[in-house]
C-alpha cells in the first residue's frame, strides 16, 4: 500500500463516519516499508501532472501525522506550493515533485497494521494489501 493511500483511506465502520477520529488511521510503528521502484526519472516525469493534481487534494496535517507514526519527522510543516503549469516548472519545483513521488508513490507499507482511533478496529496489512473487511458485528 502506497503512502499516498494513507491520506485517503478511512475506517469503513458506518458509526465512525461522523467521527473526526476515523481519519487518518493510526499506523503501527512496526510497519515495514519498502521502495516500489528503483529511482527512475522517466517515470517521475510522466507522473508530474498526476502529482500536481493530487497535491491539491492531500491533507497535509494527516500526512504529517502518518509520517510521524512511521518514524519520519522531516516533512515541512506546511504543504509546498507548486505552480499548476506542468510545462513551466522551475528546478526547485521539480525537486519537490521528485521528493513527493518518492514519499507518496514510491514508499509502500508491505507489512503492518493500522487502527481506527474511533472504534479501535485494527486493520492488518499483509503482502502490501490491507484487509478492510469488517467482522459481522461492525458491518
Amino acid at each position: 500500500m502506497k503512502l499516498l493511500t494513507t491520506n485517503f483511506i478511512k475506517c469503513s465502520v458506518k458509526a465512525c463516519e461522523s467521527s473526526n477520529k476515523s481519519f487518518p488511521l493510526k499506523y503501527n510503528n512496526q510497519c515495514q516499508l519498502e521502495l516500489n521502484y528503483e529511482e527512475d526519472d522517466e517515470i517521475i516525469q510522466s507522473s508530474y501532472e498526476f502529482l500536481i493534481g493530487i497535491l491539491d487534494k492531500i491533507e497535509w496535517d494527516a500526512l504529517l501525522k502518518v509520517c510521524q507514526d512511521l518514524g519520519n519527522n522531516d516533512l515541512p510543516p506546511t504543504k509546498p506550493i507548486i505552480n499548476e503549469d506542468v510545462a513551466n516548472l522551475n528546478d526547485n519545483e521539480k525537486l519537490i515533485i521528485k521528493q513527493l513521488f518518492n514519499l507518496l508513490i514510491n514508499t509502500e507499507i508491505v507489512e503492518g497494521s493500522m487502527q481506527c482511533e474511533s472504534c479501535e478496529h485494527i486493520y492488518q496489512i499483509k503482502n502490501g494489501i490491507p484487509n478492510l473487511l469488517l467482522p459481522p458485528h461492525l458491518s
Binding site: 483511506i9 478511512k10 469503513s12 458506518k14 484487509n131 473487511l133 469488517l134 458491518s139
Partner: peptide, 12 residues
Amino acid sequence: MLHDMGQGIPFR
C-alpha cells in the same frame, strides 16, 4: 485492497 463493496467505500 481486500474489501467488500457492500460494506461501503472506505475513503474520505
